[in-house]
Design a protein around this nucleic acid. Structure first.
Length: 475
RNA sequence: GGCCCUAUAGUCUAAUGGCUAGGACGCGACCCUCUCAAGGUCGAGAUACGGGUUCAAUCCCCGUUAGGGCUACCA
């Protein structure tokens, strides 16, 4: 039997990191097993689902390179893959349950249900539906429907049953059916609820492995009861731990960016994101850096941990730096170019490329390039206080003057010649190199830190360098 | 409240009964060095607590505590 997994997001917002990690694990598992990865959009919440969110999910998947074998915008013989296009299917299956007496119509209003729940809470009982509507006769039910009373369809939960989940990650988990109530499977708007639609679709789409967040573990017994009512074959379940914020609470906007697109916009590379997400809740020996190919080779469900993981942007930062350094420089230049042009106006790509290459070791995220390179693009760059102090130091201006003489006479303005000039001057004056370099750096960059000074001078060019030294001398 | 899940350093994890509990991020120091990075070396830092089982428990069992989830006509 070939493996079939699915990622089934509800389009109520951007693809967040938790969802992305679930998608990743499903993708990795299916592809590493030679199986199929399916995308199904669970858009049955009419209030919260939006087309923009569907698009946002595609964008997030696209950024991470998680492509699906079947789903919207792809082929597949188990479609449609948007749940709202499958309404007739859910109705058919609900009717089947109705006919077999495994489900029933319910006309209770929200107010009535709230009242029931409140009463149950006061009596310290489980807030279960009290089955009022099971007492209705066939006739009463038909009449109410005829009269246009709104209704839902409830699943008749079997009594006194033990429902066992054999979870691939958690092992055996047992629930008592008596603690579960007759949950709604079809809403009054004719749309299915999550637990119902998921079961029908997972069966029809022949999903073999349901890999999803831990938060669904408690929903699983309801779904298993449904599988049993339909006599569907049970898929394998694998509940992966959730991703939490630094306060160990469910990750939310309060913790900062949560959508993968936000991370894209902040300048994180997709391979860094994939690597980081893979390591949240999964590990393999002592290794930290995994290419997509390596993940495909090494990923397995028994490497998945049970405990929740805190999203740590510091580690993501480190990984991103690793991947920036590992990347083909031209690719990083391509990422930087539009940001630099946007900040400093049009510049020759060759010039930009030279500048960016000086900063490859210094980037944590791509947009760092903008602030780091200001003095390459602007002549009225700002001076830091420390840099100003370096220029005020005794002898600083004198040495700058001599440096200017020296390099303006240099035969050519390349790194090697410059180094010779600096070292020559240092030897003549009997001072350490830093005594020359520090004021020079301050004068031409306005800062106390930069790439190697010879590199900076070379890329900046003779004219600008001499100009800046002059400016420092007169001020 | 009920039910369920989880528990190795600040964080991500390795080690599933047996050497000084391993690696990574972060942190500190040092090296390299013109600065900042990058890179290298070293260091501090953990088995939540209490009971069992066992010759031996991070590991198995029970309890406590803590955190999380479900308990919707959300998914």
């Amino acid at each position: 039997m070939t493996v079939r997994t699915r990622f089934a997001p509800s389009p109520t917002g951007a693809l967040h990191v938790g969802g992305a990690r679930t998608a990743l694990f499903n993708w990795l598992f299916a592809r590493s097993q030679g199986g199929k990865f399916i995308l199904r959009v669970e858009d049955t919440d009419q209030l919260r689902s939006t087309d923009e969110a569907v698009k946002a999910i595609y964008d997030g998947m696209d950024f991470l390179g998680l492509d699906w074998d079947e789903g919207p915008k792809a082929d597949g013989s188990f479609g449609p893959y948007m749940q709202t296009e499958r309404l007739h299917i859910y109705k058919e299956y609900a009717d089947k349950l109705l006919k077999e007496g495994k489900a029933y119509y319910c006309f209770c209003t929200t107010e009535e249900l709230n009242k029931q729940r409140k009463e149950a809470a006061e009596k310290k009982e489980a807030p279960k539906y009290n089955k009022t509507c099971t007492k209705l006769t066939q006739e009463e039910v038909q009449n109410r429907i005829k009269n246009g009373l709104p209704y839902v369809i409830r699943f008749a939960m079997p009594e006194s049953e033990k429902i066992e989940i054999d979870d691939l990650i958690r092992g055996k988990v047992v629930f008592e059916s008596d603690l579960l109530d007759d949950f709604v499977i079809m809403k009054s708007d004719g749309f299915p609820t999550y637990n119902f639609a998921a079961v029908v679709d997972d069966h029809l789409m022949q999903i073999t492995h349901i890999i999803r967040g831990d938060d669904h573990l408690s929903n699983t017994p309801r779904q298993i009861a449904l599988y049993e009512a339909f006599a569907f074959e049970l898929p394998k379940f694998a509940h992966i731990p959730m991703i939490l914020g630094n306060d160990k609470k469910r990750l939310s906007k309060r913790h900062g960016a949560t959508s993968v697109i936000a991370y894209k916009d902040m300048g994180y590379l997709p391979e860094a994101m994939i690597n980081y997400l893979a390591r949240l809740g999964w590990g393999h020996k002592d290794e930290e850096i995994f290419s997509r190919e390596e993940l495909l080779k090494m990923f397995s469900l028994d490497g998945v941990t049970k405990n929740p993981a805190v999203f740590d942007v510091e580690k993501l930062n480190w990984l991103n730096g690793q991947y920036i350094r590992k990347a083909i420089p031209e690719r990083i230049v391509d990422f930087c170019e539009p940001l630099l042009i946007n900040a400093y106006g049009d510049h020759d790509i060759k010039h930009i490329s030279k500048i960016v290459s000086l900063f490859l070791d210094r980037l944590v995220v791509i947009p760092d390039i903008v602030e780091l390179t200001e003095y390459f693009f602007k002549d009225n760059f700002t001076f830091t206080e420390k840099a100003l102090n370096n220029l005020k130091k005794e002898g600083a201006l004198q040495i700058l003057k001599e440096l200017k003489e020296k390099i303006s006479n240099a035969e050519s303005f390349n790194k090697e010649e410059l180094e010779k000039a600096f070292k020559g001057l240092a030897a003549e004056k009997g001072v350490k190199l830093g005594v020359i370099i520090h004021p020079c750096r301050a004068a031409i960059t306005g800062r106390t830190e930069s790439p190697g000074i010879y590199d900076v001078i070379e890329v900046l060019g003779k004219e600008k360098v001499l100009e800046r030294i002059d400016k420092a001398l007169v001020s």
